[in-house]
């Protein structure tokens, strides 16, 4: 199983931020496959409050008999922004490094 290297994998962070969903390079694919593995059995999902308008992050527990846990905030109005938020959290968990870039800079927005 691939071990994430924050130095060499840093190049793929920007690729993901610019295109969270789409055709990704082999390097980003490898990084995402590693980041998306959670041995705890828990699973982050995206709850859609209003179709094409509002999303919030939720976590499925390992045991289905336990309830789905919704994060009260933030409420995302852009699905890709939620993708970036989860990517940031997973990157921190894997590397100990914070990704402080916003999903879209003022110029990009």
């Amino acid at each position: 199983m691939y071990r994430i290297n924050p130095e060499t994998d840093q190049q793929f962070v920007e690729e993901f931020r610019r295109l969270p969903v789409g055709r990704h390079s082999p390097g980003l694919m490898r990084l995402l496959n590693a980041l998306r593995y959670d041995p705890s059995g828990r699973q982050i999902v995206l709850f859609c409050r209003k179709p094409f308008a509002e999303w919030q992050i939720a976590e499925m527990p390992a045991n289905r008999l336990d309830p789905l846990v919704l994060e009260d905030s933030p409420i995302f109005t852009n699905r890709d922004e939620a993708e970036w938020e989860i990517f940031r959290r997973r990157w921190f968990k894997a590397t100990g490094q914070h990704l402080n870039q916003p999903f879209r800079s003022a110029d990009e927005a």
């Binding site: 969270p20 969903v21 990704h24 995402l32 699973q43 982050i44 999902v45 995206l46 709850f47 859609c48 179709p51 939720a58 789905l68 699905r79 939620a82 993708e83 989860i86």
Partner: peptide, 8 residues
Amino acid sequence: GRLLHFGH
């Protein structure tokens, strides 16, 4: 290739 979508 993206977060799992859950609707109501």
